[in-house]
Write a protein that binds this DNA or RNA. Structure first.
Length: 923
DNA sequence: CTCGTTACTTAGTATCCACAGT
DNA sequence: ACTGTGGATACTAAGTAACGAG
């Protein structure tokens, strides 16, 4: 395996331990430095880092001296410190900034879940993000309109509520917001209380919405900390043991890893094992491993990664030393050690690495960025598979009521359109126009069909429904056979061998032709996405590897390259936007992707050491004379506090969406005394609506940026993402705007998990995890459309709940009667009931109450999450090591949190030590 | 610097599929 | 056994960001 070096970086980071290492650039030095900053900034806050931090000043950067004002709430936030526990109190105050919004959320939460109590606590620490969050509401998702505007949505989606809800939310928030931080804090608490009250039933739609909003606000957090803290200690204690365990694991781990790989490759099974998990699990793992080990031979790529990790693990022992050292050194290298198996790779790497010794190998080293670094030494794959040719059905559409003959090509495109009849696209003018323009070219100018609106595609649509039905009706054996046949056909394309390791390929199927489904009001929606031919595809493969035969006889590839500084296996130009490309990459479970994922998290983790300094810097620059400097400061503040995306420039032929740097004056509204309401369409045309209390200086600065401009002008006219990132890089090497999202998401998860996990059964712990996951999803504004059946499902639950309540009444009546010595009444269903002792009735009543509570909880949760997508953050923003470590500490099987594919994707994180914390300061 | 390329990550939705309840 | 559900996976659109040329 490899492992290689690459790992180095990885290793460093190590899985394990972590700490230090990190690859990336930043790092460590900072620790020190950063601290200092913190202190500065914080003054207020306290958070304080523990002294250790001290200050160094890091980078020169910018930061000025402390200065800064107090504001900073944000700073506070950051504090993640929460962890710090100690400080906690302080923090909270800081956080407060966050505004009311937060509060709201909390409320909602509470309402919903009983958990509330927990909520209450925590709050403070939470990162900035918390705060924000919520307000945003989500609009609808549908491609269609809904989302977009805040405006009302079409009925479909929620019954409309959502939009409203959102709106409401904001409103609500506002109310709270005003108050000063301190107040806020208090409020929060209150809110929570309130919220409790609110609970309200889900049913009421608006309420719901509101609730949601509330949720948002909820952040809650405050108090709890302490509690959490308390827990920790325990945990720690345990840790020793664990550690030992770990080690064991570690050793094992490799295997496990391997296993995974194997599993992956082969399949199957086992993944589970991988898991890790709690001690108990360990046993399993071990066992498994053993098995696994055997396998290895293959060693898959993954292994390598893993191995790295394992190494790291191994390191477990080593670790520290390494880490430390490494840390310091810029390089990160460390790792080294790993022995990588494959020497092959090794050579290359060189670059970076080396540091240490070892050469490692491989490839890439750390650099994540990828840039010119070597990504692989040998690469073997079979190219891509093309969709089958179109099979004509011969069904005629009607034009002005009469059947029309179409050529195969014309029919193919007509079918693409006909099949979309039940989607929102079908009736959109833009979609129809674009489709018509492209289809018309195929029809020819003189074709009988001259107007799309006169066409009746019903016959084809019905044929399509019949086909679907036929497919559904196939017997299971037929389905199975068809599946196997397909697998047989595709098998060879599913795998690539990278540096001797078999890895899964992500998207080896060339995208089939279809009508472009752009999101939001995409100007190109409906355009024909034509079939891609081999002569448009460029392959990238090892020099010594056999060139895949072109699957379509008579044709050939556009080009075959041998570039080992990139990870793509093939690409072609996007037919909709010829300037862009469609790439074929390895799957997320591959070591190449795993390594880069790990680097991403290490980068975010590294930010932990510099965040205080960064906050101090931007706070100081809120009043800078230079407009660009001030804009950078405010933009950075928003990105940090609200987890906004950077906001690259976009072309006119794309949907009109914005990110931080591209916010328009009209997307931001100043609400005295110091709240800002954001309302814009972000990525995927998902609406972001959030009203937040900001630092007074930020409020003032935004007002200045808006002055004299029209609503459609850029708020940050002197800024763009490259300037912003250039500035961030000065503060911390390798830092870019997107790192803040990862940082905020992960730090929030870590803080919430550590504050709110209580003793209890696994299911209760999972609820805590989901709650933290939800908070992150809200912060990142990850939305999903409400399922069509949501309303009906809620009604069903409500009906069942009502039945339970009726049953409770009966039980109570019978209890009273039993106390008086009377026989029970007949059941509502007419059944006779037995005569029971009063305490037996009481017992039944208690059971019934439990059922009712559970149902209420489920309903609230369902309603609460109807527009929140938890998966996106789990896949892209939450450092899996936080989850794995938490699972180990609390004996929650990792499979309860990660699906099979996530376990494969996060194989590199499975052996972290239970004590792993995202922020070193949290430990 | 700006702009166009290029490479790679992030994201919502469509579809698949296993499971629970009937 | 059947079917509705919701979770998991597949798909591909839509972002971020690094570079290099002019």
């Amino acid at each position: 395996m490899g492992t290689e070096i690459v790992s180095e970086s990885v290793m460093d980071n190590g899985y394990d331990d972590s700490d230090d290492d990190k690859p990336l650039v930043f790092k460590r030095k900072s620790n020190v430095a950063s601290n200092s900053n913190q202190s500065k900034s914080n003054p207020q806050r306290s958070k304080a880092v523990p002294s250790s931090k001290v200050s160094p000043m890091r980078s020169p950067v910018t930061s000025p001296n402390g200065t800064t004002p107090s504001n900073r709430t944000s700073i506070v936030k950051s504090s993640m410190p929460s962890c710090s526990s100690k400080d906690s109190p302080a923090k909270s105050p800081l956080r407060n900034d966050t505004p009311s919004t937060v509060k709201d959320r909390s409320q909602s939460h509470k309402d919903q879940s009983e958990c509330k109590s927990e909520h209450e606590d925590s709050e403070d620490d939470k990162p900035i993000s918390f705060i924000r969050s919520r307000n945003s509401s989500r609009p609808n998702k549908g491609p269609s309109s809904s989302r977009q505007l805040s405006s009302p949505q079409p009925e479909k989606k929620n019954s409309g509520d959502q939009p409203l809800d959102r709106a409401n939310k904001t409103i609500k928030d506002e109310s709270d917001d005003e108050a000063p931080i301190s107040l806020i804090m208090y409020r929060k608490k209150n809110d929570s209380g309130i919220s409790g009250a609110k609970q309200v039933s889900i049913d009421e739609k608006k309420p719901l919405a509101k609730k949601l909003h509330q949720n948002g606000p909820t952040l809650k957090n405050e108090a709890p900390n302490s509690k959490v803290l308390g827990k920790r200690p325990l945990e720690k204690d345990s840790s020793p043991n664990q550690s030992s365990l770990k080690k064991a694991k570690v050793s094992a781990s490799p295997t496990s890893v391997k296993m995974k790989q194997d599993s992956v490759k082969k399949e199957s099974d086992d993944k589970g094992r991988v898991l890790v998990s709690p001690k108990p699990m360990k046993a399993k793992q071990l066992s498994t491993r053993e098995d696994g080990t055997d396998d290895d031979d293959d060693l898959p790529i993954s292994k390598r990664l893993k191995s790295d990790s394992s190494n790291s693990k191994t390191s477990a022992a080593k670790p520290k030393a390494v880490k430390l050292s490494s840390t310091s050194s810029a390089a990160k290298p460390k790792v080294t050690r790993v022995v990588s198996p494959r020497s092959k790779a090794m050579t290359k790497n060189s670059k970076k690495v080396t540091k240490d010794s070892k050469y490692s190998t491989s490839s890439k080293s750390l650099p994540s960025s990828g840039d010119g670094q070597t990504k692989w030494t040998t690469l073997v794959h079979n190219g891509v598979i093309f969709p089958p040719p179109y099979k004509p059905h011969g069904i005629k559409i009607l034009y002005k009521g009469k059947p029309v003959d179409l050529t195969i090509e014309q029919e193919e495109v007509a079918t693409m359109f006909a099949v979309m009849r039940e989607t929102e696209y079908y009736n959109k003018p833009q979609f129809r126009e674009n489709f018509w323009n492209d289809w018309r070219i195929l029809l020819g100018k003189k074709h009988v069909i001259q107007k799309l609106d006169e066409c009746d595609f019903t016959p084809i649509y019905e044929w399509h429904l019949e086909e679907k039905e036929k497919k559904k009706q196939m017997s299971t054996e037929e389905k199975k056979a068809a599946k196997e046949e397909k697998l047989k056909l595709e098998e060879k394309y599913m795998w690539a061998v990278v540096d001797g390791v078999k890895e899964k390929v992500g998207n080896f199927r060339v995208e089939p032709p279809g009508l472009f489904r752009g999101r939001g009001e995409h100007p190109k929606m409906g355009k024909l996405k034509r079939r891609i031919r081999p002569c448009e595809i460029t392959l990238n493969i090892g020099k010594d590897a056999p060139i895949p035969e072109c699957p379509i006889t008579g044709e050939s590839w556009k080009e075959v390259k041998h570039d080992n500084t990139v990870t793509w296996l093939a690409f072609w130009n996007d037919p909709i936007n010829p300037k862009e490309f469609k790439y074929v990459f390895l799957a997320a479970s591959s070591s190449l992707k795993g390594l880069s994922d790990k680097e991403k998290y290490e980068k975010a983790r590294n930010l932990t050491d510099h965040i205080d300094n960064i906050r101090t810097t931007y706070t100081k620059n809120f009043t800078a004379k230079d407009v660009k400097t001030r804009q950078i400061a405010v933009a950075t503040y928003l990105i940090d506090k609200l987890a906004l995306r950077a906001g690259n420039e976009k072309d006119d032929d794309e949907a009109d969406t914005v990110g931080c740097c591209t916010l328009k004056v009209g997307n931001v509204e100043c609400i005295p005394p110091n709240k800002i309401k954001f309302d814009f369409l972000g990525k995927d045309s998902i609406q972001y609506v959030n009203t937040v209390e900001v630092e007074p200086l930020v409020y003032k600065a935004i007002g200045q940026f808006q002055a004299g401009k029209s609503k459609s002008d850029d708020l940050f006219d002197e800024l763009d993402t490259s300037k912003l990132n250039a500035h961030l890089k000065e503060l911390v090497p390798g830092l870019t705007a997107k790192v803040f999202r990862t940082y905020n998401a992960s730090i929030t998860l870590d803080a919430m998990l550590n504050q709110e996990t209580k003793d209890g059964d696994v299911n209760q712990k999972i609820v805590v995890y989901q709650k933290a996951n939800k908070e992150v999803a809200i912060i990142c504004n990850h939305q999903r459309t409400v399922s069509k059946s949501h309303g009906a499902q809620i009604e069903k639950l409500a009906a069942r709940l009502e039945e339970l309540r009726e049953g409770l009444k009966e039980l109570k009546t019978n209890l009273d009667r039993a106390k008086k010595g009377k026989p029970p009444l007949e059941g509502s269903d007419g059944k006779k009931l037995r005569n029971l002792e009063p305490n037996a009735w009481e017992k039944k009543i208690a059971q019934q109450n439990v059922k009712i509570e559970k149902m209420e909880r489920d309903m609230h949760t369902k309603e609460d999450l109807k527009t929140v997508a938890l998966g996106t953050s789990k896949i892209n923003y939450l450092d899996p090591r936080i989850t794995v470590a938490w699972c180990k500490r609390h004996e929650v099987p990792i499979e309860k949190i990660f699906t099979k594919s996530l376990l494969e994707k996060f194989a590199w994180a499975m052996d972290v030590e239970p004590e792993f914390r995202f922020s070193r300061q949290m430990v």
